[in-house]
């Protein structure tokens, strides 16, 4: 359960190079209508997938912790009430912690 510096540096620098790759695309590519449409769709698709993977991936198999799911219900409630990221964060974390404490 420890990791050497080499894999860590490879992953960190690699992550930066991925960001840079997106910057270095020529303007001709950026002006393309389809590229605009794809760029607009990208965060929607990936954030959606990130949420469910965080909630339902128990190490390469399906699994969920009901305390966390209850925390997510609180998060949705905060979003419906038009609250910002911070309130959503606090709602999810505190509901999860409290339920875990009392159960």
């Amino acid at each position: 359960m420890s990791v050497g510096w080499l894999p860590l540096i490879v992953a960190a620098v690699g992550s930066y190079l991925l960001k840079l790759a997106g910057m270095l695309l020529p303007a001709r590519v950026l002006d393309d209508r389809r590229v605009h449409a794809i760029a607009g769709a990208m965060p929607i698709a990936m954030l959606s997938a990130l949420v469910v993977v965080e909630l339902l991936d128990a190490g390469g198999r399906w699994g969920a912790d009901w305390h966390v799911l209850a925390g997510m219900v609180a998060a949705v409630g905060a979003l419906v009430l038009r609250q910002g990221v911070l309130v959503v964060f606090v709602a999810a974390v505190s509901v999860t912690a409290i339920l875990r404490y009392v159960s």
Binding site: I44, L50, E54, D65, M72, L79, V88, V93, V95, A97
Partner: peptide, 28 residues
């Protein structure tokens, strides 16, 4: 114990939420 495992999905959902205004975005 502090419920911090709920932090990441909640934050990602909050970032996603404002995008879900159209049928097209919701379907995606």
């Amino acid at each position: 114990a502090l419920g911090l495992d709920a932090a990441a999905p909640a934050v990602f959902l909050a970032l996603l939420w404002p995008h879900l205004r159209t049928l097209r975005a919701s379907a995606l």
